[in-house]
Every structure is written in C-alpha cells, then in structure tokens.
Amino acid sequence: MKTTYMNLDKILDLKKWRNLQDSLALVTKLAIVTVNYKGVPISQHSSVRPFCETMRKNPNTAKLCEKCDARGGLEAVRTNAPYIYLCHWNIVDIAIPIIIDDKYVGAIMAGEVKIKDGDKHPPLEQMLTVPSKRFEQNLNNNEEIQSLYDSIPTLSYTEINDAAQMLYRLCNYIVEEAMNKNLILEVYEKMAPVKEDLSTEDISYGYSLDNIQNIKKELANTVTNAYVKT
C-alpha cells in the first residue's frame, strides 16, 4: 500500500467527514474531534464544550488535557475497542481507535459529558488525578469557570456506551470503504499503461484480504456491465 494511504487525511474526504462529524455530534450529544496517529487533530472540534475549550486554551491546563487524551488513546489501541474513561476534571471522554492492517492510524475522540447522578455503571479509570484541593480551587475561585463546568451535558452510561459503539462501527465501515476505493485507484494506476511484469504484490501490499476480495467483486461487476453494454 502507498505510504500516504496510512494517513487519515489521505483516506478520508475531510470535507464530507467534517460535515458528518458535526451531525454525529448533534445526534449523540457528544463533542467529537478526529486525530491522526500523532494525536494531531485533522478535523475541527464538533460541539466542543465551552469549559473544555477554555481549559485547552490555558497552557497549564491544556497539558493535562493532552495527557489524558494520549493515555486514553493508548488504551483504545491496546484493546482495539472504544475506551471510555474520566479526564482529570471527572468528565467522561471516549477514545475510538482507527486501525488499518494492524496499524494505528488515528482515532476519534468524543465525550465531554458527565454521567447522571446515581447511574449505575462499570468503574471508569481516571487518566490523570489532580489533587482535590487544586481541583476545587480551580472551580470555586472563578464563578465563570464554575458556570461553564456546570453547563456540561449529562448522559446515562448506556447512552454514552451505545454512542461509542455506533461511532466505532460507523468509522470502521467508512474507512474500509475508503480503502477499497483507494485500492481500485492503485489497480488502475498500475494497469494504465499495463505492465508486463505486474504482480499481485505490486497492488495488494498492505491491504487486507477483505479489501482485495471486495475489489475483485467490483472489477468483476465492471467487466460484466461493460460486456452487457457491448
């Protein structure tokens, strides 16, 4: 596979993805941002909470937010599944890994919500612990910050988990379809002009068996349609 295809911004149509991401944020009531394997955002932050936006603008608190994101992402990669956790502000976040050919290429970071009081749920790991005194001081000493913190939406754990699973399945489906299209392009690039020494390895390296089987079906349909028209 071409190396560039391991970059999410080369696989996804970012303009369409951003519009979809905005819609998903509205439907799931989660803030969502897509990052590459380095943790660098490749999309805008959909429905970002004013509290989290304020914290990330502050160099001191931003470092803590980034550490939580990094650790959450690592856990998601390790389990190859959505990972739901708590940040240092006790806010629920989700890391959804995007893995292609056993390689981590990026993630969808979602969340910025609270769990409803009294809601029963599995214990959630807090990625980073801030001393309680410091935590309270940051909130209590600033009425505006406290107000922003209180305005963070509240969801049940079931709603959060269902949204995480939906995003995981949807994202992997979209990426898989994009990979199939990229493989088609590589096939045509290799075949035009046709090379006498063309081998399967030239066009299939890095792609999964499912990718190749899907493309075989697509090419077979194309040939059949062309034959029928002729």
Rank of each mutant, 00 (worst) to 15 (best):
N7F: 00
I11F: 00
L12V: 01
L14A: 00
W17D: 04
W17E: 05
Q21I: 00
T28D: 10
L30C: 03
V40R: 07
H45V: 05
H45E: 02
S47A: 14
T54G: 06
P59S: 04
N60D: 15
T61I: 04
D69Q: 07
A70C: 12
R71Y: 14
G72V: 02
L74C: 12
E75S: 10
V77F: 11
T79M: 01
L86N: 06
W89L: 02
N90H: 10
V92P: 02
D93S: 14
I94H: 13
P97A: 10
I99Q: 06
I100G: 03
D101W: 04
D102R: 11
A107M: 10
G111N: 09
K114N: 14
I115T: 13
G118K: 07
D119Q: 07
D119M: 09
L124S: 02
L124D: 11
L128A: 08
L128W: 09
V130M: 15
S132G: 07
S132E: 14
R134S: 10
E136M: 07
N142F: 06
N142C: 07
E143C: 05
E143N: 11
Q146Y: 14
S147I: 13
D150N: 15
S151W: 00
T154H: 11
T154Q: 09
E159L: 06
I160Y: 04
A163W: 01
Q165A: 09
I174R: 00
E176F: 07
N180D: 07
E189D: 10
E189N: 13
K190R: 14
V194K: 13
E196Y: 04
L198H: 03
T200K: 09
T200M: 10
T200D: 10
E201R: 11
Y205W: 10
G206N: 08
K217W: 06
T224H: 15
T230H: 14
T230Y: 14
T230F: 14
